[in-house]
């Protein structure tokens, strides 16, 4: 910018060169991007500004908007339900993300051993990823219910070993409802992690394993010092992606437990939905959405900063 204004001759030369290069392409190009830019302008850019504006008002969907400054943000900091939803979502993030990465990596390592039937296994593990979540959640309501098949199985095992065992009521207790959501999410998403990891493992050059083998490395050492560092960019990518996904959990708790019992599985996004579309608190709901954005953004920046400590990039 500065350089251009200081040197107008240079700027106009650049501009002229740009236009001389197939001048018809200029307006033609704008026609090509027009539909996309129009849509983005309305549904993304205008919506962003509107969201910020609404978050500064007290508005019940009908009637006038009252400007309240940062009051929505301030009162959220003292809102016990927001704190609860935040805590629940943090629980989802710290359970789902590591479990999914570890399970996905273990399964991918197992499938990468050149076993027969690898494609079939991969197909089966990926199946839940493409299923309609609501349908999956309904089956989990049946499976995990207080007298469902899983409870049967647990008591059957109890009888077998001569000890009274029983499955706690996962869906109906404030203590375990979050675990029910975690189970559903793991079932649904682990296949995705597996497929991405498997592709990364296929990219590790065989020579490195052979070299490590010649040097007498055990299989654990090869895993620890060859595989894990080489696929760390993938781990980093999955880590960011799954964390963002866990922050945004909605349908899983919403269908499985309705966020209950007693809001024990309520997620931030359901809190946004409830505030906006059940209680018509548009300002409050928008403010929660911006908090969510700041959490995700801050987290991503933080990870980006720390990645140099553990992410290994091959240098050209």
């Amino acid at each position: 910018m500065e350089a251009m204004s200081r040197n107008p001759a240079h700027a106009s030369l650049r501009l002229r060169r740009l236009f001389r290069w197939r001048p018809h392409q200029q307006w033609e190009a704008y026609l090509f991007i027009l539909p996309s830019v129009l849509g983005f302008s309305v549904f993304v850019f205008a919506a962003l500004i509107a969201s910020l504006g609404i978050s500064l008002t007290d508005w019940g969907l009908v009637g006038p908007k009252a400007f309240v400054g940062l009051d929505n943000y301030r009162s959220l900091l003292r809102d016990p339900v927001f704190a609860l939803a935040l805590g629940n979502t943090a629980f989802y993030v710290v359970t789902i993300v590591p479990l999914q990465l570890i399970l996905g990596l273990l399964l991918a390592l197992a499938l990468n051993q050149g076993l027969r039937g690898r494609e079939t296994f991969r197909m089966i593990y990926f199946l839940p990823v493409v299923t309609t979540l609501v349908a999956g959640a309904i089956v989990f309501r049946l499976l995990l219910g207080s007298n469902g098949p899983l409870a049967d199985a647990v008591s059957a095992v109890g009888r077998l070993i001569g000890q009274p065992l029983s499955l706690p009521d996962l869906l109906g207790s404030t203590r375990y409802s979050k675990w029910a959501v975690v189970l559903l999410t793991l079932w649904k998403n682990t296949g995705f992690t597996l497929v991405v990891y498997l592709a990364a493992l296929q990219g590790v050059p065989q020579e490195l394993y052979d070299a490590a083998h010649v040097d007498g490395a055990t299989s654990w050492q090869r895993l620890r010092h060859v595989t894990v560092p080489l696929i760390s960019p993938t781990t980093f990518f999955l880590f960011i992606l799954q964390t963002i996904g866990a922050f945004q959990l909605f349908a899983e708790p919403f269908v499985l437990t309705r966020g209950g019992p007693a809001q024990s599985s309520l997620s931030i996004v359901q809190h946004i939905y409830d505030s906006a579309f059940r209680f018509a608190l548009m300002g409050k709901a928008s403010a929660i959405a911006w908090f969510l954005f700041f959490f995700i953004f801050g987290f991503t920046l933080l990870q980006n900063y720390f990645q140099r400590r553990w992410v290994h990039y091959e240098t050209e």
């Binding site: 205008a46 919506a47 962003l48 969201s51 945004q248 548009m282 959405a289 969510l292 953004f297």
Partner: peptide, 17 residues
């Protein structure tokens, strides 16, 4: 850059639009 924005932020304005 818009890939960074969670869809929940635009949810309410888009509903209004």
């Amino acid at each position: 850059a818009t890939l960074m924005i969670p869809s929940q932020i635009t949810l309410i304005p888009n509903f209004l639009i």
